[in-house]
C-alpha cells in the first residue's frame, strides 16, 4: 500500500469513527437501562409489570430526549455553553402559563375541556410567549453572557413569583386541581398526555433534524454564519419554537428540572468528540436517557428510594454550572 494513503486514512479515520463508536456504546447502555428498569426487582405478573413500567419508561424517554435536545439547540443558537432553556426561565414560563390559565378560566371550566386540547393550547401559548419574550434577546446584537444570565434569572424569578402569587389568590379547590398538574416529578410522571406529547416531540424533531447542518454553521458565531449564507434570525426563531415545544412537553410530564439539560449536554460535548449536531444531538439524548432511566431504576428498584433522583441530578448539574461559570470567569 502506498505510504501517503495509509497516512491519510490513519489521520482521519479515528476522528470519523469515534462519534459512531460513542453513539453505539451509548445506545447499548441506554437499551440495558431500559431493560433493567422494566425487569429488575419485578414482583407480580409480567402482564401487569411490563405495561405499568413500560408507560413510565416511554414518558422518561420523552422527557430525557426533550430536555437534552432543547438544551443543545438552545446553546447552539445562543452561542454559549452555559445558558439552558431552564436557566433562562422557559419552564417557569410554562408553569406560570398553567397557573394563569386556571386563574383566568377557572378549574371547573378547564376540567370540562379535553386535557389533550388544553395541553395543545398551553403549548401554543407557550410558543407564542416564548417567542415574544426571548426572540429579542437572541436576535440582533450579540449580548454579553452575563447580561443574558442575569436576564434569565430575573425572568425566572419574576415568572415564579407571578405563579406563586396567583396560586395564593385562587380558590383552594382550584389550587388542588392545579397542584395535581404541577406536582409531576420523575416518580409521578403525568402519563395521560403521552400520545400527544410524543407527537409534538416528533414534529419538533423533524423541524430540527432537517436544519442540523445549519446549526453546525451557527457554531462559528452569528456574523460568520451570515457570511456563509445562514439566515440567522429565521433559524433562531425556529429553534426557539422547537425549544418551547420540547420544554412544554418535559415540564408537563415531570415538572421543571433546572440543571439536568446542562449536565447531559456537557457530557455529550466531552464524549462525542465531534461538533456536528448529527452526533451531538443523539449523544445528548442517549446520555439523558441513561441518566434518567438508569438512575431511576437504581434508586426505585434497587435502593428502594423515592425522591432522590432529581436531587442527585440537580446537585451534579448545579456543580457543572458553577464549574463552567468559574472557568469562564478565570479567562
Amino acid at each position: 500500500m502506498p505510504a501517503p494513503a495509509a497516512g491519510a486514512s490513519a489521520s482521519t479515520a479515528p476522528a470519523d469513527r469515534r462519534p459512531a463508536r460513542v453513539l453505539a456504546v451509548l445506545g447499548l447502555v441506554a437499551a440495558l437501562c431500559v431493560v433493567g428498569f422494566l425487569t429488575v426487582d419485578a414482583r407480580g405478573a409480567w402482564d401487569f409489570v411490563l405495561p405499568f413500567r413500560g408507560v413510565k419508561v416511554v414518558a422518561l424517554l420523552l422527557v430525557a430526549y426533550a430536555i437534552a435536545v432543547s438544551t443543545v439547540l438552545f446553546q447552539t443558537v445562543t452561542e454559549n455553553r452555559i445558558l439552558t432553556p431552564s436557566i433562562m426561565g422557559f419552564d417557569a414560563l410554562y408553569v406560570a402559563l398553567q397557573t394563569g390559565l386556571v386563574f383566568a378560566v377557572g378549574s371547573a371550566r378547564l376540567a370540562a375541556v379535553d386535557p389533550h386540547l388544553r395541553f395543545a393550547v398551553e403549548v401554543l401559548l407557550m410558543v407564542g410567549l416564548a417567542g415574544l419574550l426571548f426572540r429579542w434577546l437572541f436576535t440582533g446584537a450579540r449580548r454579553s453572557l452575563h447580561l443574558l444570565l442575569l436576564a434569565g434569572i430575573v425572568i425566572g424569578v419574576l415568572l415564579r413569583s407571578v405563579s406563586s402569587f396567583l396560586q395564593r389568590l385562587i380558590d383552594p379547590n382550584e389550587f388542588a386541581v392545579l397542584q395535581d398538574a404541577l406536582f409531576a416529578s420523575f416518580n409521578a410522571v403525568d402519563t395521560e398526555l403521552l400520545g400527544l406529547a410524543a407527537l409534538l416531540v416528533a414534529g419538533a424533531s423533524v423541524v430540527a433534524w432537517r436544519e442540523r447542518r445549519a446549526y453546525d454553521v451557527l457554531l462559528l458565531g452569528h456574523p460568520t454564519a451570515t457570511v456563509l449564507g445562514v439566515d440567522h434570525a429565521r433559524t433562531v426563531t425556529r429553534v426557539l419554537v422547537v425549544v418551547a415545544v420540547l420544554v412544554s412537553v418535559s415540564t408537563a410530564l415531570v415538572g421543571p428540572v433546572t440543571f439536568f439539560g446542562l449536565l447531559v449536554a456537557h457530557l455529550a460535548y466531552q464524549l462525542v468528540g465531534s461538533h456536528q449536531h448529527r452526533h451531538v444531538l443523539p449523544a445528548a439524548a442517549l446520555l439523558a436517557a441513561i441518566t434518567l432511566i438508569g438512575g431511576q431504576a437504581v434508586l426505585e428498584h434497587v435502593l428502594g428510594l423515592d425522591t432522590a433522583l432529581s436531587v442527585v441530578v440537580e446537585l451534579l448539574g448545579g456543580l457543572v454550572l458553577l464549574t463552567l461559570l468559574l472557568r469562564e470567569g478565570r479567562r
Partner: peptide, 23 residues
Amino acid sequence: NHLTARLTVRDLVAFGRYPWSKG
C-alpha cells in the same frame, strides 16, 4: 471570531464550502 465549539483547522476550512455543499 468567537467559536462556540472546539474545531480542528480542517473542520473550520470545510465550513467555507457550506454555501455550495449545504453541509
